[in-house]
């Protein structure tokens, strides 16, 4: 009796250990796959061109070579471009945060006729690929008449921040439907008593929202803000349409390597790859730093906002 129990326990322990080894291997393998592109970028950004042809060199270059960073840094005019990008991204993500919070709250806590229709519109903006409305948006902002209010030729808003301002403030920017959805889910799960207490105290809707709801919504708002920030920072689609000649990171990064090679009159795939990888490291480094510091809010945020419930 006790011998068989002992044997059973023994095999259970063996099974447990075997599984944790298998699990460790799987997790490490996946981490490797995720880090792989980063490793490739970092190592090739530190290489001389000859290193790429050297069979002895796998990932570690023969010696650290920082010249690539110097060239790319100069061509990207990194300090200026970085500042522009940071300001643009901060502005856009804060505006999107403000509008999506208000809109999400409106959907979550009030009932009116046509509400579900309007919410269906939110879902609709998520389903339609932005590529489909790209050309009309481009033309509307190129010849912007404020929908008939300004005289015919209109003004050219391309190259300015106004397209971003308009779409962000109205919750129709990049992936804003998702942010509205997240805020709506979050506010829906908040207890009703809070508002009722505020209403009994005689607070109006706006006051209740600002004083009672917002302080409790900070974690969800932080999540939305971080997502908006990261996606705007990475965005090439809208940025390259609205700001095709501006000194912002995605646009400058895309053309840096070609500009360098044109200037030195030397065009080669390997060298282009080295320069591109160097630029990409400069581009994602700020994001990685932010993520390293704030990763908690990205990950826990999604769990806590009740996006699931």
């Amino acid at each position: 009796m006790s011998a068989s129990l002992e044997r059973k326990l023994f095999w259970e322990r063996v099974g447990g250990i075997a599984w944790s080894i298998v699990r460790g291997v799987i997790v490490l393998g996946i981490c490797y796959v995720i880090f792989y592109p980063l490793i490739v970028k970092l190592s090739s950004s530190l290489m001389r061109e000859v290193d790429m042809f050297d069979n002895m060199v796998q990932f570690v270059p023969r010696m650290l070579y920082l010249e690539n960073y110097k060239i790319v840094w100069e061509y990207m005019d990194y300090p200026v471009t970085f500042r522009n990008s940071l300001l643009l991204t901060l502005m856009v993500s804060l505006m999107q945060l403000a509008s999506c919070t208000l809109i999400g709250y409106g959907f979550a806590r009030f009932r009116w006729r046509g509400q579900s229709l309007l919410f269906a519109c939110v879902v609709f903006t998520l389903v339609v690929p932005p590529q489909m409305i790209m050309i009309p948006l481009y033309l509307n902002f190129r010849y912007f008449t404020f929908f008939g209010l300004l005289p015919e030729p209109g003004v050219n808003l391309l190259g300015s921040i106004w397209p971003f301002v308009f779409t962000s403030l109205t919750g129709t920017g990049l992936k804003n439907g998702l942010f509205i959805y997240i805020m709506r889910q979050f506010f829906r799960n908040m207890p009703k008593d809070l508002e009722e207490a505020a209403a009994i105290d005689g607070a109006g809707a706006m006051r209740t929202f600002l004083r009672v709801m917002l302080p409790n919504a900070v974690p969800a708002m932080l999540t939305v803000f971080l997502f908006a920030f990261v996606w705007q920072w990475n965005d090439y689609f809208f940025t390259s349409i609205y700001l095709s000649n501006a000194k912002v990171l995605p646009v400058v990064l895309e053309s840096a390597s070609m500009n360098i090679m044109n200037d030195i009159n030397y065009i080669a795939d390997h060298y282009r790859s080295i320069l591109d990888n160097t630029g990409m490291i400069l581009f994602i480094a700020p994001l990685l730093i932010i993520y390293a510091i704030l990763q908690r809010y990205f990950i826990e945020g999604v769990e806590r906002t009740g996006i699931v419930g």
């Binding site: 409106g106 959907f107 009116w112 109205t170 919750g171």
Partner: peptide, 12 residues
């Protein structure tokens, strides 16, 4: 509710 979601309705 309409006021809170108005920005989206206009933007949409």
């Amino acid at each position: 509710g309409i006021l809170f979601t108005l920005p989206f309705a206009v933007g949409f």
